[in-house]
């Protein structure tokens, strides 16, 4: 790249024009909604996409127009090229960080949080003691335990999974306990008149009623898990993994590779979140927020 080259005003100008045009297109689309209500569905997808494309074009245009050194901020096209050219490395990192550390830690952390919540559900004493602690711990910087976990469980993925377990455990615990309390007295009384046992009430009434709360925790945890695994890798890893790649490639000034990893992390995180949101729609179809059509 030619550093310090003069600003290319033509590119900057066209970027600006594109931005204005996209802005007016979006405003126009939203205004049309009032006349044709059918447009609503289309708009809820089209408008954010147009905005996103505009963002990428403006990014590309400004970086090229002002000749920003690629070390600082590479244009999206360059990042895309890097993604295409190094799929094998990206896949290796993805396997290590996402498929092993994140998914295993997520499953174990959410699972144990759920089971502990059911276990303490029968003991008001444990609930009184554990819930404030759980709420307190949720506010703590838990990623800080990463160095300890690396020391205990070694450099490979188990230490990252351990961090993810600790991070996801408490949100799940707190949410499930409040979810189990969500069914009201009337409904529980009805179950009593049916002479249903504790477990029948749990499975047929209280767990389904806790669904929205549990899915809320699952969604919060999906982003927490990815963050936990990547940050834990800053404290020591084998020679692959998303966190490892990011920290070493920054040191080598290969910023496009870093952005490629970030793009992958963002896509993986969004898909993870999206899949859970989709399952939520299927499982808790009765909830007003889903019946209403829009999420």
């Amino acid at each position: 790249m030619n550093y310090g080259a003069a600003t290319n005003w033509t590119i900057v100008f066209f970027t600006f024009v594109f931005w204005l045009a996209a802005w007016f297109l979006n405003s126009w689309l939203v205004k049309q909604e009032e006349k044709t209500p059918n447009l609503r569905q289309f708009n809820s997808i089209a408008v954010p996409i147009i905005f996103g494309i505009t963002l990428l074009v403006v990014w590309e245009g400004l970086v090229r127009g002002f000749n920003v050194p690629t070390v600082l901020l590479p244009p999206p096209s360059m990042i895309w090229e890097r993604i295409i050219n190094s799929t094998d490395i990206l896949w290796l990192d993805f396997k290590q960080t996402f498929l092993k550390a994140v998914l295993i830690g997520y499953a174990l952390g959410c699972g144990s949080g759920f089971l502990v919540a059911i276990a303490i559900d029968r003991s008001p004493f444990l609930q009184r003691g554990l819930l404030p602690l759980g709420n307190f711990v949720s506010a703590l910087p838990i990623v800080g335990v990463a160095p300890i976990m690396v020391m205990w469980f070694g450099f490979d993925w188990p230490s990252k999974a351990a961090v993810v377990i600790i991070m996801t455990f408490f949100p799940m615990l707190v949410n499930t306990v409040s979810g189990l309390a969500a069914s009201n007295n009337m409904e529980r009384d009805l179950m009593r008149t049916y002479a249903s046992s504790y477990w029948q009430t749990l499975f047929k009434l209280r767990l389904p009623a806790a669904g929205p709360f549990i899915f809320n925790a699952l969604k919060i945890n999906s982003t927490l898990a990815l963050i936990g695994a990547i940050v834990a890798e800053f404290f020591g890893t084998p020679i692959y993994g998303m966190g490892f790649r990011i920290s070493t490639e920054v040191g080598r000034m290969n910023v496009d590779m870093v952005w490629a990893e970030i793009a992958m992390a963002a896509v993986a995180g969004s898909l993870f979140y999206g899949v859970i949101a989709l399952i939520e729609r299927k499982v808790t179809f009765w909830h007003p927020s889903i019946r209403g059509g829009r999420n």
């Binding site: 979006n26 408008v47 905005f51 963002l55 982003t223 963050i227 990011i246 920290s247 992390a265 995180g269």
Partner: peptide, 20 residues
């Protein structure tokens, strides 16, 4: 309509990973 989905999407990027 245009900003809100991206505000949400911005949080799926593990910013802590970009921190360095």
């Amino acid at each position: 309509r245009s900003l809100m989905p991206w505000v949400i999407a911005s949080q799926t990027i593990p910013i802590l990973a970009i921190a360095p």
